[in-house]
C-alpha cells in the first residue's frame, strides 16, 4: 500500500475523515494569544484536537503555525520575552499548570522537526535517547524499544544491520524517519510534526505519509505542512491560519471541498500565500 502520488498538483485528493472513538477535546486550545516580546504571533486561537486523529496546520509563511505547534510542548519557553493569554489543555489539564514539569509534558508530547536533527551518535543511541534520559538502563528494554520504534518508523529493515553505525551516515529521508522513530520510542501520546517532509524527495515523503497513517492508530498527530496535497492526504482535520489568526478549522474534507471562508478558498486554490 504505497501512498498515492498525484502527478497533477491541481487536482486534490481528499481523504474522508474517519471518526474514531476517543475524546473530541483531547487537546483544547482556548482563546490563545501569544507574543514574542512586543510582536504578537498568535491571536484568538481556539480549537479542539480529537484523540488519535491527524490535524494539519496550513497557512502562508509566517502565519504562526510553527509557533502554535511549538507551544503545544512549550518548546518556546527558552525564547526570551514570550507571553501568552488563554490556555491550552491536554486531557483537561493546562500545560501551564505550575505543578506540571515541562519535562514530563515533553515526554507526553513528542516532536519531529522540519530539518532532521539526528544526534551525532549511533542509530541505536539516537532511538533510545529518550529512554536513556528517562533513566532506563535495562538493555533488553532498550533493544526492544529500538526495534519496535524503528519498525513503526519503517526504517528497521534498512538499518537493522548497522544499528551501531553513526546516524549521520543515513540519507535525508532515513534521517527524518529516524527522528520519528526517536520521537516515538518513549511512547508519547501526541506527536507534533513541523513540516516533516519539506526536505525530502517524493518517495521519502510517501513513506513518511504512510507512516503517519499507521501512527495515527496510536498517537494524536499535529502536522504543519505547506503542501495542500499532503494535508489533504494525511489529515482528518485541517486548520487554516493567516497572520496569526485562525481563519477556519474543520474536517479536511470540508476545508478542501467546501471552505466556508473566502480566504481559505483563495489559499487552497493557490491564489495567494
Amino acid at each position: 500500500m504505497t501512498a498515492t502520488m498525484n502527478p497533477n498538483p491541481s487536482r486534490i485528493q481528499v481523504r474522508p475523515a474517519t471518526e474514531r472513538d476517543g475524546r473530541r477535546d483531547y487537546i483544547s486550545i482556548r482563546d490563545y494569544g501569544f507574543w514574542y516580546g512586543q510582536k504578537q504571533a498568535l491571536e484568538g486561537i481556539s480549537l479542539d484536537i480529537p484523540e488519535r486523529q491527524v490535524v494539519a496546520f496550513i497557512g502562508p509563511s509566517g502565519c504562526g503555525k510553527s509557533t502554535l505547534l511549538r507551544n503545544l510542548n512549550r518548546m518556546n519557553d527558552l525564547v526570551d520575552g514570550i507571553r501568552h493569554v488563554g490556555d491550552i489543555t491536554i486531557k483537561g489539564r493546562s500545560i501551564y499548570d505550575p505543578g506540571l514539569e515541562v519535562i514530563s509534558l515533553r515526554r507526553r508530547v513528542g516532536m519531529v522537526f522540519q530539518k532532521s536533527n539526528p544526534f551525532p551518535k549511533s542509530i541505536y543511541e539516537n532511538v533510545v535517547f529518550a529512554l536513556r534520559v528517562m533513566g532506563v538502563r535495562d538493555r533488553s528494554i532498550l533493544d526492544e524499544a529500538c526495534e519496535t520504534s524503528l519498525r513503526k518508523a519503517a526504517l528497521w529493515d534498512e538499518v537493522k544491520d548497522r544499528l551501531q553505525d553513526s546516524a549521520l551516515g543515513l540519507s535525508g529521508g532515513q534521517m527524518q524517519r529516524l527522528c520519528i522513530a526517536r520521537a516515538i520510542a518513549n511512547r508519547p501520546e501526541i506527536l507534533l510534526m513541523d513540516e516533516p517532509c519539506s526536505a525530502l524527495d517524493p518517495i521519502a515523503t510517501g513513506k513518511i505519509e504512510e507512516l503517519i497513517h499507521e501512527l495515527k492508530e496510536q498517537f494524536t498527530i499535529v502536522i504543519v505542512t505547506h503542501s495542500m496535497q499532503q494535508a489533504a492526504r494525511v489529515s482528518d482535520r485541517t486548520a487554516f491560519f493567516y497572520l496569526g489568526k485562525q481563519i477556519e478549522y474543520d474536517t479536511t474534507e470540508k476545508i478542501f471541498m467546501n471552505p466556508s471562508q473566502a480566504q481559505t478558498e483563495a489559499y487552497i486554490s493557490g491564489r495567494f500565500g
Binding site: M75, R106, M111, F119, P120, F129, R132, V133
Partner: peptide
C-alpha cells in the same frame, strides 16, 4: 547547533541531560 539542543529537549531531556549527552 540549536537544532540538536531543541531535539534533545523535545525528547524530554532536562537541560543538564541535554548538555551532558548531546
Amino acid at each position: 547547533p540549536q537544532s540538536l539542543i531543541s531535539g534533545s529537549l523535545a525528547l524530554g531531556a532536562s537541560r543538564w541531560q541535554t548538555v551532558w549527552s548531546v
